[in-house]
Structures are given as structure tokens and as C-alpha cells.
Design a protein around this nucleic acid. Structure first.
Lengths: 270, 270
DNA sequence: AAGTTTTGTGTCGCCAGGCGATACTTTTAA
DNA sequence: TTAAAAGTATCGCCTGGCGACACAAAACTT
């Protein structure tokens, strides 16, 4: 689920902050089970769930059973192991229908995709990562299905840097410093100062460009979407193959398109 | 969340079946709250959550608080009301990365989109509905963002009819009869016999065509994906504007492409 | 502006829902 | 065949969560 090593779904060490009396532990445990299952590509059994969540076997059994009864998990009758059910897509759909920024941005993104003929994404900042919330594929990209919900570290994504460039310098720096900066490709810039320089450049330009930092062969330009107070709310990405377009062309031709779209969305009254 | 009126998230009438001692009620309640919030476009407060779920105000408060603490709900500090958080996308992403059919189908769908230059979808059957799990947009469609997770009644969708055509006649009929058959457009066929006739035709043809039954101006052809036992596992859709293509062209040109793709996916060892 | 209603927040004692140890059954591995 | 491991079922204890109530803060009304 997480892009990095997966910061343990475990319950073991009681989340200290939420010792609040309103906190319903069972719910937390249920979600821990759900995420534990979701983190594995293969089906997982109750023993393994118990191990991954820190719950004992009985609890794992009960929560898995309940999630299955609710339709969020499916049980393979043959192996008696669990996997996520299509049902979880319902929540994502509800979110996408609900979020005002998504609703507002979608038509502008469609126009942008139409005019640039490249892959267009909308991402949001969430903790150390950006999350893709909308993806409009380009005509010919064969790879990557719909990566809705995918998370990428903000420090090495164009969208992340675009958004960070609008935060106060110290906030941005703090986030970069505290972020696990595991390189995603050989080209990922991980040095704090170097990343901050990229962010500074983005602040000047009004957009950020990343070259093969998240995915080999890919160049991405992103412009930030802001709310009425000027704080970053998201980012518009245009992504393409480095084989087809060099940095100069991206900055000269595509960056202004991303900026224009982001500005339209920002001004849309969100 | 549901496409129809929304069959009440309510807890009130204890789900009788799941009186099993393994069933963890708190989890069910938590999800009821989550879905109650997701069903509304606007933010909802604890009182309203209580009303919609049948929980009392205290319970609604506790679950909403907990879901917020877990990151699945966001609280607007101004209105003190809740909405779904982007966090729910994580589950969808995990599902899409996990499901073997999705993984298997994606490259074939990309090829199909490439060759037909239309919108291509993959759907699964779930209860009375089909659920869209993959969508590859066409080049110029301006509408509809990523409708991952959207549900459409099976009886009036091409994918649904394609899948139903491979079920035993009585099973298919039972599903159609018991399904709420509220028309989505003036062209939606709701008469059971008429729907069964469409399904019979699909059985013969190996694909189903729907014309403006789910969305005005849209014509869709779908072919079923089957598992090793020949039971339907999903459907490949090709959708386009009725303004651009008539039924004859769709049947002659696009149907074979959908069938071929579905067959490749079916044979992919799922 | 004062009153009135509605909605969100905080508290607390009671008790049933859930916890987890244990035992049983089935499957997988050796 | 045997053994180890994983899934399933049971059950008494006890604590987590339930829900009635009171309080505070908005949001309407007049």
C-alpha cells in the first residue's frame, strides 16, 4: 500500500496519540487486517494476518471473517485464504465522486489531455507522498493500468516539488529531510540540498520538471493547484517518454500548458 | 455508493445472517459510517451520520472520530463535518495491484484500446451490478473522469448481459427478475422477457451490444471473459458515441475485437 | 441582540461484545 | 505415516465500547 518498505500495519505498539477515549480499537484492528491483506499480492491466511498485524490468531480470524461478511474481503474456498474484494473500489468511487477538487479539475484535465496528447494526472499531497487521484492516459501508452491511489514520495516527483515550492521554505525542508529518501531509479535526487534547489527552481518557474526520477524513461512536468489562500492543494502533471521529448521542449512547450490548466483549476472557486 | 436509491447503510435491523459469534459488530458500524459519509456529496456531521446509520449520536461520534484518526475521513474544522479522505484510494490501489485478472487483462486492454481507438473497460459481475475495474479512456472523450468502482445494473449493461449469457439460463433469469430494474435512460430495456431475449442473442453472438441503455448517446459492445470452467469472470467493453458509429458497424467491426481480446484474457491462465 | 433550536463535544457507570487461551479438525510437508 | 502447520470452533472472563445525559458552541429566528 505504501510505496516504501511498508511502515508496518502492526498494532503491537499501541498508537500512543490516539489513546483518546473516543477511539474504537476494533475499527483500527479491522483496518489493519484489511491493509495487511491488501499489502500482499498473493492471498493471505489468518495466521499470516495475525503475524503481520500483531493480533492473535483469534482476533485475526474474527476480523477477517467480519470483513468477508461485509464484502471487503473474499475468501478463496480452496486455500481458505483472503484477498481484497472489488468492494473496496466502491469507497474509491465514492471519494472520486465526492471530492470537490476532483470534480472541478476533471474537465480542465480532459481539455489539457486533448491539447497536449500526453498522459495527464492530478495528484494530491498526503504526508510524505503524493497520491494520484485522476489519470487520463495518453493514446499510446501501453503500460500502467489505472494507477489511482498510487503513492510516490513527494521529494522526487514533479508534482510533489511543485507543491512543496509553495510551502514556506522551512516546512518544505522539514518534509524533505524527514522523508525516507530511498531512490526509485538511478536518477532519483536524494540529497536534501539538491532537492531543495530543485524546489527553489520550481518556485521561480511556477512548475517542476523531473527526469527519470520516479520511472526510467519518463519525463514529467507539473504545476501546482492552489486554494484561495495560495496554499498548494494538488498538482497537474503532464508525463511523456524521454525518448520523444527532451527537457527543453518540455519546459518550453508543455510546462506552460500545465501551468495554465493548474491556474484555471485554482481559479475555479475551490 | 450503490447506483440505485442506496439500499440504506442502516444498521437498525440487525443483519440476521451474520449473528455468527465471530462477527465483530464494531467493524460493521465503522464501515456503515464510512459509507454513509461516502454516499453524500457534501460533508456530513455526526448527527446526520447517526440518522443515516441508525446508530446513536455517541456511537456516530466515536466511529467518525476513529475513522478520522485512521485517516479515512477528513474533518473540516470550520463546519466540523466529515468527508471521505484520499486515503480510501489506497485500498483501491492495493486491490488493483492485487487482482490477478486485472493484472492479466491490462496489457491486452491496452492493445485493444490501441487498435480500436475507443474507450475500453473491464468490468466484473458483483451481485446485481457490474463494477468497472479498469478504464482506458479514448482520445477525445471529455466527460467522465476515472469511473473506477462505478456500478451499473447488470441487466442493462452490455458487459452484464455478456456475462449473464454464460450463466445457466435459470440463474440469469433469476438475477434479472430479482434485480431492481429502474431504467437509466428512456431506452433502457426493463421487461424481463425482452432482457432475456437480449441475453439469448448475446449467447449466440458471443458478445452483447447495448444502445443508449445506460447513457444517452452511447453504444457499447462487450465480450465475456471466462475462467477455466467456462464461467464468466468479467467482461471487456468497447464504448463509443452513437453519433459516430451505428449498430451495424459496431457489430461488424468492434465486436470481433472485443471478443478476441476477451478470449486472449480468458486464455491467459487465470 | 437576545432567545431558541440544532449540532458538536465531553463524561461516566454498566454490561454485553469482543478477547484470547485452548482444543479440535484439516491440510500440507516430510 | 507421521508430524507440523494452518484453519476452525468453543467458552468464560473482563474490559472496551455503549448510550443516556449534560454541556458548549453554532446556526437560525424573531
Amino acid at each position: 500500500m505504501a510505496v516504501s518498505k511498508d511502515p508496518s500495519v502492526s498494532i503491537g505498539s499501541e498508537t500512543p496519540a490516539q489513546a483518546n477515549s473516543l477511539f474504537v480499537t476494533s475499527l483500527e484492528r479491522g483496518f489493519a487486517v484489511l491493509e495487511a491483506v491488501g499489502n500482499e499480492r498473493r492471498d493471505v491466511g489468518v495466521t499470516e494476518i495475525a503475524a503481520k498485524t500483531g493480533l492473535d490468531k483469534s482476533a485475526a480470524q474474527r476480523f477477517a471473517f467480519t470483513l468477508q461478511a461485509l464484502g471487503y474481503l473474499e475468501k478463496n474456498p480452496a486455500t481458505r485464504r483472503f484477498r481484497l474484494s472489488r468492494r473496496v473500489l466502491g469507497l474509491a468511487h465514492a471519494y472520486l465522486r465526492t471530492d470537490p477538487l476532483v470534480e472541478l479539475a476533471t474537465p480542465y484535465l480532459a481539455d489539457l489531455r486533448q491539447s497536449c496528447q500526453k498522459r495527464v494526472d492530478l495528484s494530491l499531497l498526503d504526508g510524505f507522498d503524493i497520491v494520484y487521484v485522476v489519470r487520463l492516459q495518453s493514446q499510446r501508452e501501453a503500460f500502467g493500468a489505472t494507477v489511482i491511489g498510487r503513492r510516490i514520495p513527494a521529494f522526487c516527483s514533479s508534482g510533489g516539488r511543485a507543491m512543496l515550492s509553495l510551502l514556506p521554505e522551512d516546512e518544505a525542508r522539514a518534509l524533505v529531510e524527514r522523508s525516507p529518501r530511498k531512490p526509485l531509479t538511478p536518477h532519483t535526487i536524494t540529497d536534501v540540498e539538491a532537492v531543495m534547489a530543485q524546489i527553489a527552481r520550481a518556485r521561480q518557474d511556477g512548475f517542476a520538471v523531473c527526469i527519470q526520477e520516479a520511472l526510467m524513461g519518463e519525463i514529467v512536468v507539473a504545476a501546482p493547484v492552489v486554494d484561495m489562500q495560495g496554499r498548494p492543494r494538488g498538482a497537474v502533471h503532464i508525463a511523456m517518454a524521454l525518448a520523444d521529448h527532451d527537457e527543453n521542449e518540455v519546459r518550453a512547450k508543455f510546462a506552460p500548458m500545465a501551468v495554465a490548466a493548474a491556474r484555471l483549476i485554482s481559479g475555479g472557486g475551490y
